[in-house]
Design a protein around this nucleic acid. Structure first.
Lengths: 220, 220
DNA sequence: CTCTTTTTAGAACATGTGTTTGACATAACC
DNA sequence: GGTTATGTCAAACACATGTTCTAAAAAGAG
């Protein structure tokens, strides 16, 4: 094999692109694959074998999935093909399931769906590795997190000093502010009525994630 | 077998349903139409002509679009699947545009799109006649509404005593708690550093709506 | 039971469509 | 020039698959 001219736009590159574009458009418009002869017309080629060549090449490039022998069986192998599935409004939106209540000795973190779910913009929370918890109790009232609020938690195992985090202590989950006192780690409630909790990162004491957002629908 | 005397057709109804279900499943799984013979196997029918009959009937019923002669060309004609369109995730979700900043003498309420928009469950806020405002300032800090929060406002012209509302005073928009002092209406800040504002419902002083929700993405 | 209607089956038919083969043109290269 | 690689084409081929026809089987109706 000799060196292929990578720098110059070869003739085939243009044809391949036309074929690919036409397949995309056809599937988008008609919700079904074009036939080889459809592509002939659409891409300005006069021979089915030319199209055949390019289809096979597009398959090798991973841009389409091509089933030999099957009629109208081209599938676009892009991001996600999408058909009759739960789809976000835009690519920026993620669905967060509320997976439990938090604080004050509730069960927590069991069933993967507490019932409702809400939608937030991925660009706002910065990640899609998030989940949602409903707050119970008012131990964080000075941080303006109230009973009944939904907090958005980004999953992570560590956190910085001063972060408000969701943590698991034994069977109990809480929202608290992580900090240090005399060099030792504590979870600080933001309420004078509660006391700081010594925190040891073990199997029993586990950081669930950092609180990155809050939704409140009880305004009083 | 199972004598289902529900209505006139019983056996064909079951077959039609099996065919339809299988077509749905096949398209969902493979992202392309099944062939008539695929459906034969999938729906437990042994004759292509039976499938053919049912496909034509499903087309008449409007459940599928069936292109005579075309291979693997069945299209599901369900709840609009026009791709790449702005569609809600579920019927329960509404998109709220942030239409401006609020409090402390900003312009406000002008351009119908301040930039970002967020999604909330209609069932939670109880109405889709809502809009969103970004809070600026800390005059409502004791009500746990902070600088940078997004508040969800349900449009209404009146409100009850004690409601937290968004109101327009001259050119200026604010969030305040509506209440009365000595029988006269006031807008109360929830911050000792600010004073109550006498409120007269005129062209200059206007209730925009009631605050029904709050989103916060700055957690400190 | 007999007659009618509906549902399914089987086979034959028709054709859309994937696949292959070989040829022709054009360009690149020695 | 001759040689080789590449892009395209036309035609022939193979067959998966849509379509139709006729009839058997099953279900109701009387």
């Amino acid at each position: 094999m000799s060196t292929t001219p990578l720098n110059s736009e070869s003739k085939s590159a243009k044809s391949i692109e036309r074929v690919y574009k036409y397949v995309q458009k056809y599937i988008h418009d008609n919700a079904l694959s074009p036939s080889v002869r459809d592509i002939c017309a659409g891409a300005g080629l006069k021979s089915t074998s030319s199209v055949h060549t390019y289809l096979r090449r597009l398959d090798e490039m991973g841009l389409i999935e091509y089933r030999p022998g099957m009629r109208r069986a081209i599938i676009l192998k892009n991001s996600a093909e999408g058909s009759s599935e739960e789809e976000p409004v835009s690519a920026d939106v993620v669905k967060l399931n509320c997976i439990g209540k938090i604080t004050a000795g509730q069960p927590i973190y069991a069933h993967e769906d507490y019932g409702d779910s809400q939608y937030v913009n991925k660009s706002i929370i910065g990640s899609d590795e998030c989940f949602m918890l409903k707050v119970s109790g008012s131990s964080m009232i000075n941080a303006h997190i109230l009973d009944g609020d939904y907090i958005i938690v980004r999953k992570q195992n560590t956190c910085d000093e001063g972060d408000i985090i969701a943590a698991l202590i034994g069977e109990e989950a809480t929202v608290k502010r992580y900090g240090k006192l005399n060099g030792k780690p504590y979870l600080f409630p933001e309420n004078e009525l509660y006391s700081p909790i010594p925190f040891f990162d073990t199997e029993e004491c586990k950081i669930l994630g950092k609180v990155v957002g809050l939704h409140r629908y009880n305004i009083n």
